[in-house]
Design a protein around this nucleic acid. Structure first.
Lengths: 213, 213
DNA sequence: CTGCATCCGCCTCGATACTG
DNA sequence: CAGTATCGAGGCGGATGCAG
């Protein structure tokens, strides 16, 4: 159990007392896409010790950031409202990292889930002028369901259900669209972006993904 | 030199590789109010080891978050544009902590600078309908200069210069005004809020400080 | 006096082994 | 599958020393 505190009467210090320990924010990142089993978290967090993951989940549960969700043969870990409240801070941190040239560490492991989180961070609800709707996003071949709900974009890793449109691309294309390095029509033309269903609604949605402008 | 990396091809992981180490974000917090000397940082960060502060500053300098600003008999540390770019993320994290009941650690130390940072976090530029202007804020008896510049509120710990108005209160009153627990007129009436100069401009400014609504 | 570097004890972390 | 137990390595906290 991590028990080291800054002991400062400052909101940031108190926040870091709660979530500043190693791995904690990455656990929350992975839970942003939906409830996860212990084992799923382990494979999404290569390098974490099994004791650390258990410790972190326990203290996060005590603080009220996550809760256990009973399921057949065990349970899933899911974010509480409080834990979900960290999403804006995480999104801002991701946007900062995406616009900043940070030193790269040679042998990075890669996971498709992280691209979904990056897409969430690129979405700016202020720019979305379309109607409320469900979309299907196939990123690097993996499907997810997008839904614009009030101030944020909900993105769950699952498939099925009805959707106004299906958007298919890879993460690089998504990033290039957001930064304006490639246009909507161009990406469509050279096949890196595929849309089925309501093409106008998809265009409106993609227009809300922006970075650095 | 902190050299432990998550080695994940994920923006959040890379951000935490850069600023996730202990004390780093608190150093940035303190630098948000202006350049600081090494010794000033030490007194604002009770408990940090002198070697750790030096190490952190060195790695932050290498990444490009801070730079040395020569000054008589030594130098000051100041944020670069890249370092300043973390401000939105920090502000969101502060707002999260202020709206969340987190476990308190008995004997917290307190510093007036942290209240200024909290005030920055409460400011929502979207809600500010007034004109660009300079204000003087006296918080708990300590003066600072406020200036609305584009998307953010600049807040420097200094005094002097011209100001459209001077706003005088304590941090608690500021928080109560932001959360709506007390109204502008009431706070003025019972003397916890004092305004000299352009009272209307001050009211417009204070209306842009909000939390949880 | 300011701005660190060195040294040392402790606690967190990461990895492996083991259990309900 | 979902953790607990254990242990070595290293980051961290505190005291002290020293150079410009």
């Amino acid at each position: 159990m991590a028990r080291r505190s800054y002991k400062q009467a400052c909101s940031l210090a108190r926040a870091l007392d709660a979530v500043g320990d190693r791995w904690t924010l990455l656990i929350i990142r992975d839970l942003l896409l939906g409830p996860r089993r212990y084992g799923e978290l382990q494979t999404c967090l290569p390098g974490i010790g099994t004791n650390l993951l258990a410790d972190r989940l326990k203290s996060m549960e005590k603080i009220g950031l996550v809760r256990r969700l009973p399921v057949d043969a065990g349970h899933r870990w899911e974010l509480t409202e409080t834990g979900l409240g960290l999403q804006p801070a995480l999104m801002e941190m991701i946007r900062w990292a995406m616009t900043t040239r940070l030193p790269a560490h040679g042998d990075e492991t890669s996971r498709p889930e992280w691209d979904f989180v990056a897409m969430k961070a690129l979405f700016d609800p202020q720019r979305y002028t379309g109607a409320r709707g469900r979309f299907r996003l196939v990123l690097n071949g993996l499907p997810a369901v997008l839904e614009v709900v009030g101030e944020a974009l909900e993105l769950r890793q699952e498939d099925g259900g009805t959707a106004a449109a299906t958007i298919e691309m890879d993460a690089t294309t998504g990033w290039q669209l957001a930064t304006g390095k490639v246009g909507f029509q161009d990406a469509l033309a050279d096949g890196r972006l595929k849309i089925s269903g309501d093409k106008d609604a998809a265009r409106q949605l993609l227009a809300a993904f922006t970075l650095g402008g």
